[in-house]
Amino acid sequence: MARVSGPPNLLVTTLHKAVDWARTRSMWPATFGLACCAIEMMATGAAHNDLARFGMEVFRASPRQADLMIVAGRVSQKMAPVLRQVYDQMSEPKWVISMGACASTGGMFNNYALVQGVDQVVPVDVYVPGCPPGPQSLMHGILTLHEKVMSGELARR
């Protein structure tokens, strides 16, 4: 990422890379815990598997202050417009992680009540499978997202 050029206390990089680095190091999630996956999301933020080491323990309630929406849980037909509204209220750049089987594809509930995959409603960057995915799986998903952002793969939509 950096080339040491000249005296050793000088770091040179591109603005793009520096911005990406800053974005990944304090990507604040919005509280969008819906069902069982929310419990595992809270466990990821708790002391045992600490999200704070990535700068992410502040789950912002207001979507205006959040960068990342982790859709944790099953999205019902009644909740889908709310989901879209919260997503729209987030300011760019924003990312979405679809956590769990129900958020990714509707999970085991292939019926009238659920939206079969949250990507019918919002664009998703990373899907984390599991029912519910343990904290380590979620953390892997988050770090995958960090890598994607750092590598510049997710350009502005």
């Binding site: 509707g106 292939n110 019926n111 009540a113």
Partner: peptide, 11 residues
Amino acid sequence: TPVGSVPVQFK
């Protein structure tokens, strides 16, 4: 009333 299942969509 049918249960409302949809065919699984592969992305």
